[in-house]
Nucleic acid binder design. Structure first.
Lengths: 157, 157
DNA sequence: TCTTTAGTTCATAATTTACAGAACCAAACT
DNA sequence: AGTTTGGTTCTGTAAATTATGAACTAAAGA
């Protein structure tokens, strides 16, 4: 399998993005190739050879992504190969992870506000205000999603 | 300077959180101590000694955080020491970074959609839908913030 | 039963990172 | 002029991360 320069570039970019999200380089590239490839599914071999990653690294990456629910595979009868693809639900998950992450930050900040007693309360005030914003955001998100779904349905019609 | 167990624990937790955001361990701890300390400002020495970080690591961490605009310092006449604190604008910035990050993802995904031509367009449809959601979110955020500010003002009154 | 295919597992090599320690420097104090 | 203070910069390295290649395995095919 051959990829265009643009595809290779995008694999790199997406790869770096996902590295910053805590994935190992090779794992991030595997996600990348599954994302940008023209084919909807790729085999172990195609991934390993196209990305120039050793079999072991490919094996580890694929199993890791399978375990974390980022990808899935199908097989075809009379063909021992597995055909891997990104789980389609994955997009929303990516977003959810970011939101959960903000929730975690918020929890930490709440506890920070709780333990420290500053001489200058202006700071605490700002922190409190940020915490309240994150709470508000969390509360409003379902609304926002619903709203978008309505808009989206309209657009299609 | 001594910190309570709770403070130390929070520094660790915030530290790990910030490590996942791409900061080096020592840098993340420095942010942490500035966040949870009772004092509104801390000196180089206090940071270095309380966290048990070498002078070089402390120096690097502080300069890094200064350069990236995460912290700032003041001085007092007749005192050569610098007094460091987290930039108060920083809370909103932390949130903005997450949002920018989603924007970056969105840009990559848009280009992905552009280069690949899938046999099966159902996948592309889902991707497109996610992209559109991120666009919607970005567009609505200012609204949401405004809305929150109104709520917030009400609450205070 | 022997071989091929499609992977997995393990030991280890290669990088990368993150920090410590020492030497260094400039300003201020004596 | 010499010393102390408040750092900075440079070099070396311990530790962690990541990937490789070789050996292995289990299923299928000849």
């Amino acid at each position: 399998m051959t990829l265009s320069d643009k595809q290779l570039e995008l694999i790199e970019e997406f790869g770096v993005y996902q590295e910053n999200n805590g994935f190992q380089p090779a794992v991030a590239r595997v996600m990348g190739i599954l994302l940008v490839s023209d084919k909807p599914e790729l085999t172990f071999e195609e991934i390993s050879e196209t990305l120039n990653i050793s079999k072991s690294a490919t094996s580890n990456a694929l199993n890791m992504l399978l375990n974390t629910g980022h990808i899935e595979y199908t097989t075809f009868s009379g063909d021992r190969k597995r055909y891997f693809r990104i789980k389609s639900s994955n997009w929303r998950d990516l977003f959810n992870k970011k939101m959960e992450d903000l929730g975690e930050l918020n929890n930490i900040l709440k506890r920070v506000l709780d333990v420290r007693k500053r001489e200058n309360p202006a700071y605490d005030q700002k922190l409190l205000s940020f915490i309240s914003f994150l709470d508000y955001l969390k509360a409003q998100l379902p609304n926002l999603i619903e709203q978008w779904e309505i808009e989206n349905a309209k657009h299609k019609a």
